[in-house]
Amino acid sequence: MRPRARVASALGAASLAAMVVAQVASGLQPRPITLTSVVVLLLAASALAFACVTHPPARAVAAFAAVVATGYAAEWIGIRTGLPFGDYHYTGVLWPAPGGVPVIVALAWGGMGLAAHAVAAAVAPVSRAARIVTGALALTAWDLFLDPQMIRLGLWVWHDPGPYRGVPLVNFAGWLVVSLLVMALLERVLAGPTAWSAGLVSIYTVMAVMETVGFAVVFVPPDPLVATAGGLSMGAFTLLAWRRGRGRRPDPEAGRA
């Protein structure tokens, strides 16, 4: 591993460890919202650092920025038109929120977008089309946790609540559409051979485990439905990624500017 890649890997690991600490701390206090933004910032920092291990830094930053911009645009359109997620609005708890969309939400798209793409690269390393579809499904699986949790925290409100803990089913269709666009963008920006990234897959794994445990036993009241639905969905992608990615090595040219 090149020196620059070693530094990026260390920064990614430190940010991921700090994110876990912040996530645990948020689950132990009566108002976890105070650490929500910290968790997302650390998630984004960790994902960007790990992306710099397996890709040239300029390309990793461009990829992250593209996903952040796409997520922001989708949310900006969504709160104004109801497309593609359904009718909803943010409550103003998260800030700053230029144009009505919290910046932290766009950063979450960026961090988990990179992580889901790395999962897809491990599961389907040969086929670009398969990576796009797999990555989109992996990213959408995360929303089985995300939306119920954010509704609990009062971060956004659905105008027409749906059957999945108040989340309308059209939301998940919208997530899949936007996630397909995100994965197609990442495939274009991160051009060239797709390397195995244990760091980015670790981010996805950590989120899957912590959200499952949170909904199963930590949150008050617990929610076995969400813990099962999200845990099985993200868990399946996690197991596939580690099983198929194990033994692969990062591209020796990774991280070269």
Rank of each mutant, 00 (worst) to 15 (best):
P96C: 13
V119Y: 05
Q23S: 14
A13C: 07
A195S: 15
V39F: 13
V209Q: 03
S37A: 15
G71L: 11
Y90D: 12
W158E: 14
A5K: 00
P224Q: 09
S15M: 11
S127F: 07
E253Y: 00
S26D: 03
H117R: 14
A5R: 04
A257D: 15
D147Q: 12
S127G: 11
L155Q: 14
F237G: 02
A138M: 10
A10T: 11
M234G: 10
A97Q: 10
L139W: 12
G230C: 06
R31E: 15
A208L: 01
A129M: 02
G113L: 09
M234S: 02
V213E: 07
P56C: 01
S37T: 15
L232T: 03
R31H: 14
S202C: 06
V177A: 15
S127P: 09
L107Q: 03
A129N: 04
V157K: 00
T54C: 13
G255M: 02
G230S: 03
M150E: 13
Q149C: 03
A13L: 14
P222H: 03
A97H: 11
L114Q: 13
A66W: 05
V40S: 08
W196Y: 10
M210T: 11
A106T: 01
W196T: 08
S202L: 14
G71S: 06
A69N: 00
V123M: 05
H117P: 08
V68E: 04
F172Q: 03
A198T: 08
S9H: 14
A8G: 11
V189T: 14
L43A: 11
I77Q: 05
P250E: 10
P252A: 09
L42R: 01
V40E: 14
M210C: 08
A198C: 02
V213D: 06
S26I: 00
E75L: 11
C52A: 14
T194R: 15
G162W: 12
V126H: 15
G235D: 05
L11V: 06
R2C: 01
F85M: 10
P148W: 13
G86V: 08
G235L: 09
A122Y: 02
P30W: 09
I104C: 09
R188K: 12
P163Y: 07
S179T: 06
L11I: 04
L11P: 02
L240T: 07
V201P: 04
W142F: 15
G235E: 13
A62I: 03
G214D: 10
M234Y: 01
F172H: 05
A120Y: 12
T205V: 04
S127R: 14
R131V: 11
W242A: 06
H89C: 07
F237N: 08
